[in-house]
Nucleic acid binder design. Sequence first.
RNA 1: UCCUGAGUAGCUCAGCGGUAGAGCGGGUGGCUGUUAACCACUAGGUCGUAGGUUCGAACCCUACCUCAGGAGCCA
Length: 453
Amino acid sequence: MLETLSQILASESPRASITVRGWVRTKRDSKSCSFLELTDGSCFKGLQGVVDAGLPCAELLPRILTGTSVEVVGALIDSPAPGQKWEVQVHDLKILGEADASYPLQKKGHTPEFLRTIAHLRPRTNLFGSVFRVRSKMAFAVHRFFQERGFFHVHTPIITSSDCEGAGEMFRVTTQKPNVPTKPEEDFFGRPTYLTVSGQLQGEAFACALGNIYTFGPTFRAENSNTARHAAEFWMIEPEMAFYDLFADMTLAEENVRYLVQAMMSECPDELEFFNKFVDKALISRLQQTLDKPFERISYSEAVELLLKSGRSFEHPVVWGEGLQTEHERFLAEEHVQGPVTIYNYPKAIKPFYMRQNDDERTVAAMDLLVPGIGEIIGGSQREERLDRLTTAMNAQGLDEETYRWYVDLRRYGSVPHAGYGMGFERLLMFVTGVSNIRDVVAFARTPGHAPY
RNA sequence: UCCUGAGUAGCUCAGCGGUAGAGCGGGUGGCUGUUAACCACUAGGUCGUAGGUUCGAACCCUACCUCAGGAGCCA
């Protein structure tokens, strides 16, 4: 395997000969030499190459503009100037691919809005390079968290026929031609099918067999929502645990968030420092606080009381039985608790059929984990394991029994208490990077009216 | 989908009724172990699109398009 910059920079002593392949970030010319700032994406840091004016390869320098890809051979030496530990004294230089003056990235700052329009080039910037290195590290940490705890990874289907939760518009999957009237039973799958909005229902089937499972994959919502927190395609982590009740569920969710924050801090220090400096100056202190302080838990009813007693005038009235609005959640997480907070036991009427009914007959065992700046990062519940209660709830919400027959079977045969949650992976990334727009933590974001790649 | 704001050079922006501007980036020259280098010169624009008002519109009005921020829905 070829050596990456990340490996080269980890050197403990000078080396007579190294080879660096990467892109030129900037070039600075001096009379006796030129300085090339090289990056290869393997880590946040770059390496400065020094090309003496007398070298034969120095003739290439006029053709090297920002963005040019090069192969550099030279000696890794202690840098005599402040600003970097190492530099490479160039012996030979090869241009792999030129980049002319139309290359849109400059060394000066670009707005994220502009960079979104060149999503194929933006991972070459400090900001987006950092975001996507972190995204990879976090994805692996998600698997590690569950695997270390004996959870099994289940690959639930992307194409589904159950319009789970009745929560939101779905993307239709079909092979039928437009403008040709055909029946769903004549379609590819013999029935209407959609891109999944959640793997939860299938996840429950596996939890009721393997015990503790999780899914981690793409999910799709055809909602016309235009916000910094919504995308039409996003990744979700959905653990499902047999024999867990709501409180065990909440505990796992909190540990999960804390584990990932810890991973961010210990595995991505350079990126973290960059985000803290240029994206969100309160990032490190907020993450540290997340680790230091236990997460608070407030029941929905208590939360309503708190909001009513806060003396705040909210744009949306606070009424028991209504969902908490964004401004309410922000108040709870950012002002009242000033940290992550779990709200639990929501009114039955505003939650889907599968959540377990509490003894009070008016709430269900649901929970949302709210974090400052983002809002809901996790939503979960204990599932209704009692056959009669489940079918009653299904009927009340007008669901087709035939479609959910297999799901009801889980209660018919050896039903067990179980619980789970869904964590929005992009929202987690926003939380640990401080990046405020979901479009900037997705490689090629899909939002309403926007799928150019 | 609703509300608000913005679209001027490749990028970031100023100009807000009277000849289209700056910084960065590009080119040329100079200087310098430089590090968002520096200095001088230079090229670069149907002022989002289409109408309208006016002697005259980047600027005022209308519609549309695009983007952003906020809201709803949620992860």
